[in-house]
């Protein structure tokens, strides 16, 4: 990259477009209830839903509440999505019995920690345990590491969840989100 172009890129990094793309995908999928424990990677998507009078955004005290809430939504004829960080997947495990045994759809969008470029060792156990834990419970897992593929991955997962009554999780990798480095922040 030429020096001038490089300095411009550093001065004004382009905002990622995938949060807006998956907002459209989820709207087209008929999502009305958004259950979430916030993660920085989901902040833009959460703001879009909060500004949308057609969707109800519910802040949970623990992610398993969302699994149960979206089961209730399905019983009442509404579709929802659960937004969470990978560490929250661990909180959901037994509650996943509900959509699995009842053949209910569940769409989870999981932003990863303890993945590519992680700096915090405490994030590693659950980050590396996220996919095997979900798969052990019978959740279909699709991981995405390319920003350009996030929207189509979420779209496919939504179709799978709502057309086949399966719990499906999309794992959005740290290659998409950018790895945090608090050590650099601490030096500033």
């Amino acid at each position: 990259m030429a020096e001038a172009a490089k300095s411009r890129a550093e001065a004004a990094p382009a905002l990622p477009t995938w949060p807006d793309e998956i907002y459209r995908v989820l709207k087209d999928a008929g999502i009305r209830q958004v259950a979430m424990v916030p993660d920085a990677g989901h902040s833009r998507l959460i703001r879009s839903f909060e500004a949308d009078p057609e969707t109800r955004v519910v802040t949970l005290t623990t992610e398993e509440e969302g699994v149960a809430m979206l089961a209730g939504a399905w019983l009442g004829g509404e579709r929802g999505v659960l937004l969470l960080q990978s560490s929250g997947v661990g909180n959901c495990i037994n509650m996943l019995s509900l959509p699995v045994i009842c053949h209910m759809p569940l769409l989870m969008i999981v932003t990863m920690r303890g993945d590519w470029g992680e700096f915090n060792p405490w994030q590693i156990p659950m980050g590396q345990g996220t996919r095997p834990s979900l798969e052990a419970m019978g959740v279909i897992v699709n991981k995405v590491d390319e920003p350009d593929l996030v929207a189509s991955t979420v779209q496919g997962a939504a179709n799978l969840a709502f057309n086949t009554w399966k719990p499906v999780a999309v794992l959005v990798g740290q290659r998409v989100l950018g790895a945090k480095n608090f050590k650099e922040l601490a030096r500033k």
Partner: peptide, 12 residues
Amino acid sequence: AASMIGLGLALA
């Protein structure tokens, strides 16, 4: 699960 199933259902 019971209370939160109730919430999702009540909202729907």
